[in-house]
Amino acid sequence: MASVDQTQLFEFLCRMGDNTLVLGHRVSEWCGHAPVLEEDIALANTALDLIGQTQMWLGYAGDVEGKGRTADDLAMLRDVWDFRNVLLVEQPNGDFGQTMMRQFLFDAWHLAMLKALTASSNEQIAAIAAKSVKEVQYHVERSGDTVIGLGDGTSESHKRMQDALNLLWPYVGEMFVADAVDDAMAQAGIAPDLASLRAEFDAHVGGVLAEATLTIPDGKFTHKGGKSGFQHSEHLGHLLTQMQWLQRAYPGATW
């Protein structure tokens, strides 16, 4: 473990923390707008869990970096090109069905990833994963149930869920494509080989989508460039202007 490059470890931790931060913020955009009260509460609680997990990932990222940056500094004072989340989580909410499809596709990957990370050679990462996985089990149970309910619902809800799946499926691949950072983490026993998570994901997602009477689109094209920071979609910048506005306008403001 001592041999792992700290810059690469920092990158990896930013990927984990930026995924939960950006998705947490996206989901929080529903607060007060969801179709029914129970869903509003569920979305807000999911967002809260994700933001809480972000504090652990980015807090540790700041420690590893060793420049005195806190989780808040990393969340609120970095620009688009420094974010390392996958493109899936920054996609706009769309309608409720699209939000829940995005949630389910991420949750299914997130659960498999966190389960693997509980066995990380890095104790701190194993501890964060063990804490988070309990929360994510509830997330995926709900998002999966909702995808089934709406997919196998009315002709209108079915059509919207199929449209959402067609739109979002090309973003799934990025979660499983390993680069130099992922390879270094896998070699050090810090994180799993991402490709090894695919079978569990496919079985889980395939089962839910079949029950939801939805069809996985053909085609192997995958949007990439989010987790490497090479090229985010235009949506992330708009999200950050909202999320970071207060700290940018009033640096260091606290409650």
């Binding site: 129970e38 509460i41 569920a42 609680n45 809260l48 509830y138 149970e141």
Partner: peptide, 13 residues
């Protein structure tokens, strides 16, 4: 069960 999520993170409805 009404919902797996409730008024605080630790509760369901």
């Amino acid at each position: 069960r009404i919902s797996q999520f409730g008024s605080t993170p630790c509760k369901a409805q």
